[in-house]
Simulated scan of single mutants.
Amino acid sequence: MQYEGVLKKMQTEIGTPIQYYLIFETDFLNVNQVLNKDLKIELIKHQCLNCGNDRPIFRQGFCKSCFFDIPSAGDWIMRPELSTAHLDQEDRDLAYEKKIQLQPHIVYLANSSNVKVGVTRKSQVPTRWIDQGAHEAIEIVEVPNRYLAGITEIALKEHVADKTNWRKMLTNDVKDLNLIEWRNRLKVYIPSEAKEYYIENNIETNLEFPVLKYPEKVKSLNLDKTPIYTGLLKGIKGQYLIFDDNTVFNIRGSEGYYVGLTVS
Rank of each mutant, 00 (worst) to 15 (best):
Gln103Trp: 08
Ile77Trp: 15
Ser112Gln: 02
Gly74Phe: 00
Lys98Ser: 04
Gln132Gly: 08
Asn114Ala: 10
Lys98Pro: 02
Gln124Trp: 11
Gln101Ser: 12
Ala85Ser: 01
Ser112Cys: 03
Val117Leu: 01
Ser123Glu: 13
Leu82Ala: 06
Leu82Val: 07
His105Gln: 06
Ser83Leu: 13
Ala110Gly: 09
Val107Leu: 07
Thr127Asp: 08
Thr127Tyr: 05
Trp129Pro: 05
Gln132Tyr: 11
Lys116Phe: 13
Ala73Leu: 02
Val125Glu: 13
Pro104Arg: 09
Arg92Ile: 08
Asp91Lys: 05
Val115Phe: 01
Arg92Phe: 06
Arg79Ala: 10
Asp93Lys: 11
His105Cys: 05
Val125Asn: 11
Glu81Thr: 09
Ile106Arg: 10
Arg121Gly: 12
Tyr108Ala: 05
Thr84Cys: 11
Val119Ala: 11
Gln103Ser: 14
Ile77Ser: 08
Arg128Asp: 08
Trp129Leu: 05
Gly118Leu: 04
His105Ala: 05
Asp75Leu: 12
Met78Gly: 15
Trp76Leu: 05
Tyr108Thr: 06
Leu82His: 09
Asn111Thr: 02
Lys99Phe: 11
Lys116Gly: 10
Pro126Thr: 09
Asp75Arg: 15
Ala95Phe: 14
Leu82Cys: 07
Gly133Val: 06
Glu97Thr: 01
Val125Ser: 14
Ile106Lys: 11
Gln89Gly: 06
Val119Gly: 11
Val115Met: 00
Ile100Met: 09
Ser112Ala: 15
Ser112Lys: 02
Ser113Val: 11
Ile106Thr: 15
Thr127Gly: 07
Gln101Pro: 05
Arg128Ala: 09
Val107Ala: 06
Asp131Leu: 00
Ser113Gly: 11
Lys98His: 04
Gly74Asn: 04
Ser113Leu: 11
Ile130Gln: 03
Leu94Asn: 01
Leu109Ile: 00
Lys98Arg: 14
Arg128Asn: 09
Gln103Ala: 13
Ala85Thr: 02
Ala95Tyr: 13
Ile100His: 06
Leu87Met: 04
Glu97Met: 01
Asn114Tyr: 04
His86Asp: 10
Gly118Arg: 02
Thr120Lys: 10
Ser83Ile: 14
Met78Ser: 15
Asp93Trp: 13
Leu87Ala: 02
Gln132Val: 08
His86Phe: 12
Val117Asn: 03
Asp88Trp: 01
Thr84Lys: 15
Val125Leu: 10
Lys116Arg: 12
Gln124Leu: 11
Asp131Asn: 04
Ser123Asn: 12
Ser123Arg: 15
Asn111Arg: 00
Pro126Glu: 10
Glu81Asp: 14
Ala73Glu: 03
Gln103Asp: 14
Lys122His: 08
Pro80His: 14
Ser83His: 12
Trp76Met: 08
Asn114Trp: 02
Arg92Ala: 07
Gln101Lys: 07
Ala73Lys: 03
Pro126Ile: 09
Asp88Pro: 00
Glu81Asn: 12
Ile130Trp: 03
Asp131Met: 02
Ala134Gln: 09
Arg121Ile: 07
Leu102Asp: 05
Leu87Trp: 03
Asp93Gly: 07
Val115Ala: 00
Pro104Gln: 09
Tyr108Cys: 06
Gln132Cys: 07
